[in-house]
Design a protein around this nucleic acid. Structure first.
Lengths: 356, 356
DNA sequence: CTGAAAGCGCTTACAG
DNA sequence: CTGAAAGCGCTTACAG
């Protein structure tokens, strides 16, 4: 393209260089903190940049360097997620950012539209090279995204493990530990008929949860009964439905473990409608502490963790897998199971008179 | 930079062109749907791109075209927002995307870290030219970001009006209409001592809300009493606190209008602790319908709107202000007040025996 | 309809 | 310590 004769106003680094009567190379070096720049020159450049509000155009930079200094967090925001209004991602994001900001890496969230296939969406984002690395979330049991990212040779980490990601970096909540702890506690209280909720989708955490439950029962010599695994949406309404199904079971369970915080609200509502009081007539243990479940009466026995710190951990898992940062974040393992802590409440605080 | 003698594997469009034995110009034109390409050629190019998984590098594209085809939605995610776990943004995002996707525009969310000044953050994002246009949210009463964006000549729209944005495009919920409707309804029920909650921060919606309240009272000839405006955080706890202050007022209000959905939960709790029943002893009207407030007894009188459709509207407001799209979205006005609909509940369904 | 070439805004190896 | 120049991957005006 041949420019016309009109002298356009220069933009970017060129303008700044001209303003300073200095070459653009030197301006660039000064701005980027390269060592071989005269101190006086650097000061002038920095001052002028500040004054003129100059910041390097990211496209120019990225094209030259092959790096964007941006990390993407892909979120699905399914209709279910949206309706449930969970602060989960925003909180984890805070933790991620606290680490990334130390390296001048910006985190952006990539919300996959409802009507777009997550795999295709991710493919597009990867190919456009808009980010240097990616974090995926809501991992499915079989999740093609792992292979896609591995093949694309783009650094990534997953929030949530997956059958497809056994060799790949991830951080995940300790569903196994939670369910173990819950079963142990309930068994110690005399329960043997313990129901569990599982998500109706293929999200991997559901499988981990149910598998942990099986093994925990086995440890206690309690036979596994598929009827005790109640599938429902991870929502208040799902909790209501779980309670409904539970009440209809022939030999009614004396305890139930919920996989999702908000289900407890719906479950309480439903059982109370039948005059059944949690903590007296049925033991309830719920997965994660939630502000909106905090006011349930009787107080809910649940598990607590710092999602912010989970974000920090996930960020470090990712950075340890990025060539440019791996020395700073040396790790034995690329996979983290993130612990939760039991918060005893009243919802399971009774002992069953065992027949034995 | 002089490359060594080693023939590196070509990447990108060059590789694709070589594979097809055709020039990169033609490949580019074919891929971008330019008319002056032989149909046969175009087919070959598209097939090869699909097969090789080629997608144009965004940096190269952006640098050349001066456009990224990405729209940024800046969110603040203050500690308060995070703790409150609101699906607000995700829902609006769905609406935004449904419009943007028609134009192959991708929406990304830009979460400003807690410890970074929103103004500086935005400045950085603008200067990097990572997005073609920006949507800002949580507009403050005085919000320097409007001037920043206007000066940077980057198209933008705000989710929420502001004193600083009187000339700029925005879409906002109709706080004024809500408070008018609420006051009318309460007055019709015989109330004259009507309290209102307001956010403790400088977020502009608080001012709009209180101002609407003043005018509505005035319309009914009810004197404005500053003591009736109770400032609190927009959270359950804030609602609890509002109730607490309310109960301590000398001449106790007979009605209260809440600005934030979750406050109702805390307010119910607090007044009930004092044996006061909403809908019998005090009238409660709350701002927006919320899943977690849905189960309050007695049912909460509140307002409903489609946040998805608000997102659609906001997207159109923005596009109407982008030169490349303004013809497609012609508009009389660049500012939208988004309506809400009253959902009558039981929480204000009683008539006060007026002394008169 | 296609190819060759310019140039978007940067960074960096190289020469001085 | 600084400047001149190459080149990152694209798109597009121009020539044929």
């Amino acid at each position: 393209m041949v420019q016309g004769g009109k002298p356009r106003p220069m933009k970017g680094i060129r303008q700044l260089a001209e303003h300073l009567d200095i070459s653009i190379g030197t301006v660039s070096r000064a701005l980027n903190g390269k060592p071989d720049v005269n101190d006086e020159t650097r000061k002038r450049v920095l001052a002028a940049a500040e004054q003129l509000g100059y910041v390097a155009n990211q496209s120019g930079r990225s094209l030259r360097q092959g790096t964007t200094n941006v990390i993407g967090l892909m979120i699905q925001s399914s209709k279910e997620t949206v309706e449930n209004s969970d602060n989960f991602f925003l909180t984890v994001t805070g933790g991620l950012q606290s680490v990334f900001s130390r390296h001048k890496l910006d985190l952006i969230m990539l919300p996959c539209p409802h009507d777009e296939d997550p795999y295709e969406y991710l493919k597009r984002m990867v190919a456009r090279r808009i980010v240097d690395a990616l974090i995926i979330s809501e991992t499915q049991r079989v999740d093609k995204r792992f292979d896609l990212l591995a093949k694309a040779k783009i650094p990534f980490a997953a929030l949530g493990r997956s059958l497809s990601g056994t060799q790949h970096p991830w951080a995940d909540l300790d569903f196994d530990g939670v369910v173990n702890c819950a079963v142990d506690r309930l068994v110690a209280h005399g329960h043997r008929r313990i129901a569990i909720s599982a998500p109706s989708s293929d999200i991997n955490l559901g499988f981990v949860f149910v598998e942990g439950y099986r093994r925990a029962l086995e440890r206690h010599g309690i036979p596994y009964d598929p009827a005790m695994v109640i599938r429902a949406k991870s929502s208040e309404q799902g909790g209501y439905q779980v309670a409904d199904e539970l009440l209809r079971l022939d030999d009614r369970p004396t305890a139930v473990i919920l996989i999702y915080e908000l289900m407890a609200i719906g479950l309480y509502r439903r059982v109370m409608e039948s005059g059944i009081i949690p903590g007296r007539d049925i033991a309830v243990v719920s997965f994660r502490e939630a502000p909106r479940a905090k006011f349930l009466q009787p107080a809910l026995t649940c598990f607590r963790t710092s999602l912010h710190d989970l974000g920090v951990e996930l960020a470090e898992v990712l950075l340890s897998n990025m060539p440019a940062y791996s020395q700073e974040y040396p790790r034995q393992t690329r996979q983290t199971v993130w612990p939760l802590e039991l918060i005893p409440g009243e919802s399971d605080a009774f002992y069953l008179k065992t027949a034995k």
